[in-house]
């Protein structure tokens, strides 16, 4: 991981931490039970974005082909 990327990541994580902290001070209107807890969006998004990338990558390994289609 090169330098810039690491720096960006650190900044992003800091912002995320701030947002989660702020989340403790607002009033929540939960639609269901767990989504009203502070910081839910942060961890849920981390998990689902990672899952999305991995699933797509895996699908790509299976189904991705080199080159353009013959009739495109």
């Amino acid at each position: 991981m090169d330098h810039t990327r690491r720096l960006v990541l650190i900044v992003l994580l800091a912002v995320l931490a701030l947002l989660v902290a702020a989340d403790f001070f607002v009033e929540h209107h939960a639609s269901f039970w767990i989504d009203g807890t502070p910081g839910f969006a942060a961890w849920f998004s981390l998990a689902s974005a990672a899952l999305a990338v991995l699933v797509a990558y895996g699908w790509g390994l299976l189904m991705r082909r080199r080159g353009e289609r013959a009739d495109d």
Partner: peptide
């Protein structure tokens, strides 16, 4: 506020994963 915060967390967290 809570809704905006929710969405911002969602987006920033996804950005972390992207990086």
């Amino acid at each position: 506020p809570d809704h905006v915060l929710f969405q911002l967390q969602l987006l920033i967290a996804a950005s972390c994963i992207f990086v």
